[in-house]
């Protein structure tokens, strides 16, 4: 299955795939990032992240996704693995304040960055307003997509506030809160229990509070 010309999103093609990798990038070793820049396959790489305001020092297989780093290494299991392929949104976290699918990124790519997970938003005795609203509106059922929904919802309100348009924004320069906007922007978070209208109600509530 070696193929010289296969290429893909996010990657411009190098040369033919072969069995071993050669050490390269002498100059890159001196690149600004101070972490070890190179490792043999299977060897551990040191990664530093700031997770929910606390520094985390990890030794990771470079293959480790941010999601697995959180769940399996930091034991922050609030972030869920629904599909592991960017198809469901259950793994949504905030990195440097932006929501992403933590399953489709490597932890090592986020060296030195700040990650906020559901655990960082609030705890049972100190709920984030969005968490409170999800409870009040029954914005969940089985609970498995819920942390991702909540992380996404928090980011969605910020995106609307920042004037980022969406697919349903009629005039690209006039971005405003509406149910339709929230539905579109939340569509990357699938809820098979389908608490959708309740989730929208929860977000609407929090948006209203923030305006007030």
């Amino acid at each position: 299955m070696t193929s010289d010309h296969l290429t893909r999103r996010g990657l411009l093609q190098g040369s033919a795939a072969v069995a071993t990798a050669l050490p390269v990038l002498g100059e890159a070793q001196a690149a600004p990032a101070s972490r070890p820049q190179y490792n043999k396959g299977g060897r551990m790489t040191a990664v530093e992240l700031t997770v929910n305001g606390r520094e985390a020092h990890l030794q990771l297989d470079p293959r480790t996704t941010l999601l697995d780093a959180l769940r399996e290494h930091l034991h922050l299991t609030g972030t869920k693995k629904g599909c592991d392929h960017g198809q469901c949104g259950a793994c949504t976290v905030l990195v440097e304040g932006r929501r992403i699918n933590s399953c489709l990124t490597l932890a090592v790519m986020h060296e030195g960055e700040s990650v906020t997970t559901i655990e960082g938003l609030g705890a049972p005795d100190k709920l984030h307003p969005m968490q409170r609203a999800f409870i009040a509106h029954d914005g969940y059922q089985c609970g498995y997509c819920t942390p991702g929904q909540i992380c996404s919802a928090v980011a969605v309100l910020e995106e609307i506030e920042a004037g980022v348009p969406s697919h349903v924004t009629r005039d690209l320069d006039k971005v405003a809160f509406s149910d339709a906007e929230v539905r579109e922007r939340m569509s990357g978070n699938i809820c098979r229990c389908a608490a959708y209208p309740n989730i929208i109600a929860a977000i609407r509530d929090v948006a209203g509070e923030e305006k007030a």
Partner: peptide, 30 residues
């Protein structure tokens, strides 16, 4: 398994990719 590096410049990235068997650039990664 793979090895991972951060390039310091576009020229260096291209050079490394061409000279490293099995190398790929990674950007968003999605």
């Amino acid at each position: 398994p793979f090895t991972y590096s951060r390039a310091a410049s576009v020229e260096e990235a291209a050079r490394a990719a061409a000279s490293t068997p099995g190398a790929r650039f990674i950007a968003g990664g999605t």
